[in-house]
Simulated scan of single mutants.
Amino acid sequence: MRQIPLGLGPDEPHSFDNYFPGPNAAVVAHLHALNSHQRPAPVYLWGEAGAGKTHLLQSLALEVKALGGRVGWYDAGASPEMDFDDTWRLLVLDDSERYGPDQQQRAFALFVQATTHGQLIASAGRWPPVDLPLRDDLRTRLGWGHVFHLQPLSESDCRAVLRQAADRRGIFLSDDVMSYLLTRFSRDLGSLMGLLDRLDRFALAAQRAVTVPLLKQMLAEERQ
């Protein structure tokens, strides 16, 4: 079971408002408070794929921008040549476990420069810093400040997230459909949200209510 945004259209930006905190309320509160500090300590979030790490980093970036700050975003798809900007309020280092050698070197340099200029640094990876497949100096920097492990949602929270997501899409999910989704598919809620989107479109095209038979029909047609 993994955390997902409650936001429901693909164009809705990730924010703290559409993140279901569950057992991670203290992490969200900490991130919320960062903008009130002049020189906050770095933050590192870790957890398995789908845990909500990027959602929270994007939420923090959105909040910084809303307050007039600029954000530098560096992830596994970024160029090793990305320039540092001393006007950033926030530097984000996402997908850190996927950095190649050149990206690791650049991420380390960005981290040092951001620290020197008193910028907020928020980073994330799939594992705790000590276990990241990175050069030692970068691992040390990522684990220097506050490190948070994003905890998975309970099954009841998982159901609540899906229910709210479906309600905001105008889909009625019966208990039978909910149980079918949670017992027969991976509880990666990111994947389940994609399934929910496809099911919504399929039901609209068929002009039928969302039921287990309709779900089975959609899956059968997708396999053809």
Rank of each mutant, 00 (worst) to 15 (best):
V161Q: 10
S179Q: 14
T116H: 11
G52S: 10
F202A: 08
M178L: 10
H117Q: 12
L162H: 07
A109K: 01
D200F: 03
M82I: 12
L6I: 09
A25V: 05
T54D: 11
D197T: 11
S154M: 07
V212N: 06
G125C: 13
S154V: 02
T87S: 14
P128S: 10
A33S: 14
G118L: 05
W88G: 06
L153Q: 02
V210D: 03
D75N: 14
L150K: 07
S15A: 15
G47K: 07
R98Y: 13
V43E: 08
L153I: 01
R187T: 10
G47S: 08
D102R: 14
D175C: 04
W73I: 14
T54Q: 11
M178S: 03
H55F: 03
Q3M: 11
G47P: 05
G118N: 05
V161N: 09
A66M: 08
G47T: 08
L8D: 02
V210P: 03
G118Q: 06
F148V: 14
L181T: 06
D86G: 01
T211V: 08
R89N: 00
M178N: 02
G118I: 05
T115A: 11
A165Y: 07
L67E: 15
L34C: 11
Q207H: 12
P80I: 14
P23C: 02
L142T: 10
S156T: 10
A124S: 14
Q151S: 02
Y44M: 13
L62Q: 10
A61E: 09
V210G: 09
D75M: 03
V112E: 14
R201M: 00
G22F: 03
P21D: 09
M82K: 12
A33I: 01
D86V: 01
Y99G: 02
L150G: 01
F16L: 03
A203F: 07
A61S: 12
D175V: 07
Q151G: 00
E221L: 12
H14N: 11
L6R: 09
R135F: 09
R208W: 02
A26N: 12
A61N: 08
E12R: 10
A26I: 12
Q151P: 00
G9S: 13
P42D: 09
P129F: 05
